[in-house]
Design a binder for these strands. Structure first.
Lengths: 329, 329
DNA sequence: TTGAAAGCGCTAACAG
DNA sequence: CTGTTAGCGCTTTCAA
């Protein structure tokens, strides 16, 4: 209104000029924009959102944690990509608590977000499911059973790792990974079992330890496995945070890697290269995962038809931590 | 309006009931809330923000990156703490680009955020400074010259590290850290120099290499230092990402740690414990940093008077990567 | 091409 | 305690 008054035009014209409508005389539009800039005018997004009820001004990004490479990399990328569109990303941490998840989702609906990127918590609530139904959603990293596309890692490289270990002669292979109650836990375990089967090993003969997220850091499971009489000659880990603690536990067990024990971990090869020898790592291209998620969300918001899941190929990044089993075993 | 009609009351009463005003008959209030819940009513935050012009519905969180432990941990904590208040955190990545920073800040002003947590980019723009003036701001990790409190690490442990190395007998100490153009780069260099001086060493005799953020990963600087005729017998690194690449470079140089070279890095001890021997690490309590930042911001928003900077004590986490210099040196 | 005016969904005086 | 009503700052018909 101020601008309109000062320039002797109507608010409608100002609005049109500022929004780049072609239905205003270019010269006038230019003058208005100039004046707005000089005055340091910044349009109120709330008013805008309230008025034109359809906008992609905000999206939600709902994840269990962010202080983990997987999530932080993707959060960063998404915020970056979306901001280019003028879309603001509201970051929300569930800590894997279904109750929080629901509350936060409700808050996001309250700000009428255009869509949501979601990495669901473990025990997703019915109310949450309901909210999600009338919202463009992209699942990411983990899935819950809702009808929305998602971007995931195929985690096939975990299977490759097992196959390769079996080919090296390992017969007692251990696997420590996230619980099956998370979708990616189930997927990773399946990959590992497939890998064993592919090499002619009985999947049920694997020494498997599945852990609830953030409950335990895997050190206990590793210790237990490594102190058994028939301890595995190779250990595969299916989670980033788990990998760190398992690697530490292996170190403190005094076993030599790969002499006594072959070790394959999950996460960022750059960090696991600190280990001596550099660890063999199953990794995913997180920035790419993020790009796909962002693109998918934009598509959903844009009203594109039903989209397919994106399954990114995981990679087995060879290090020096795998070798033949020790002679005695 | 729907709720009001359906219950035969006015919108004002509904609003009051939903906002927990005491000026409505408890029984009625209860009935209204119940009905709202059943209908799945979720109040529009934009309308709310527009109407009651003062709200802490949104805050901005503006940082150069988030896929780095320092920032991701703090982002997570802040989002967590603020969401307890019903405040939504808009995450924004500048990539250390002043232009983006300004744009994003302008967008945040457009959504009338109650305040901003900011880790300024290197060459902050005048326009940015101006925007920041009439906004509750908390600086974090880095500072720019604006009049706003901040939370930082004191980085004094970097100085302790140098002192300790000098006490072990090291005379040629190298330092690789972030450029002085970032405030924490300057602070860390100062800490290192102080540490040298405290041990009776000439600060100017340190072999210092300062790097622009994200331009170079420190490997080059490390290589150069380690291949000099009078190569340092100890190396201190003043940045998390730098530490990783320097550690790798040291590894590939073939020098033994700490036999040939003592090494002190910066970051999360848990990760650097992967190295053999575990590296000595200068670390900061990031969750605590986040808590302080969140608390400070809430204070600012609440209109508390001028607040002081928070300087968190950094810690020297001893590993096995420091020892006396090699006999010959 | 421009203007007048009616909302968007809520809160907050101001009355009663 | 409750209702009426006037905005909050925009966008968007509908006319001109």
């Amino acid at each position: 209104m101020d601008l309109a008054r000062e320039l002797g035009v109507s608010t409608a014209t100002v609005s049109r000029a500022l929004n780049g409508s072609s239905r205003v005389r270019p010269e006038l539009a230019h003058r208005i924009r100039e004046h707005a800039r000089d005055r340091g005018y910044i349009a109120n997004r709330h008013a805008r959102a309230l008025s034109s009820n359809s906008s992609r001004a905000f999206v939600g990004f709902v994840i269990p944690y962010v202080d983990t490479p997987a999530y932080s990399a993707v959060a960063a990328q998404c915020a970056r990509l979306l901001s280019a569109d003028g879309t603001q990303m509201i970051l929300t941490i569930t800590e894997n608590d279904p109750r929080r998840e629901l509350d936060q989702l409700r808050d996001l609906v309250a700000t009428r977000v255009a869509g949501v990127v979601l990495s669901p918590s473990t025990g997703i609530l019915p109310g949450t499911r309901e909210l999600l139904q009338d919202l463009p959603v992209v699942q990411f990293h983990r899935g819950c059973g809702i009808d929305a596309p998602g971007v995931f890692s195929d985690d096939a490289a975990l299977g490759d790792a097992v196959t390769r270990l079996a080919d090296l002669g390992h017969r007692r292979i251990g696997y420590i990974g996230p619980s099956r109650s998370i979708s990616n836990g189930a997927r990773r375990l399946a990959a590992v079992r497939d890998g064993a089967a592919a090499a002619g090993l009985d999947p049920d003969a694997l020494a498997v330890r599945l852990l609830e997220p953030a409950t335990d850091h895997g050190a206990g499971a590793a210790r237990e496995l490594l102190h058994r009489a028939d301890r595995p000659t190779a250990l595969v880990v299916g989670g980033g945070t788990l990998s760190l603690s398992v690697a530490r536990e292996v170190r403190s067990s005094g076993l030599r890697v790969p002499g006594d024990l072959s070790l394959v971990v999950y996460g960022d090869p750059a960090w696991f290269a600190l280990h001596d020898p550099p660890l063999t790592v199953v990794s995913v291209d997180y920035p790419e995962l993020a790009r796909r998620a962002a693109r998918l969300l934009v598509g959903r918001i844009g009203g594109d038809g039903p989209a397919d899941d994106v399954l990114l190929t995981s990679e087995l990044h060879p290090g020096g931590s795998t070798g033949p089993p020790p002679p005695g075993a």
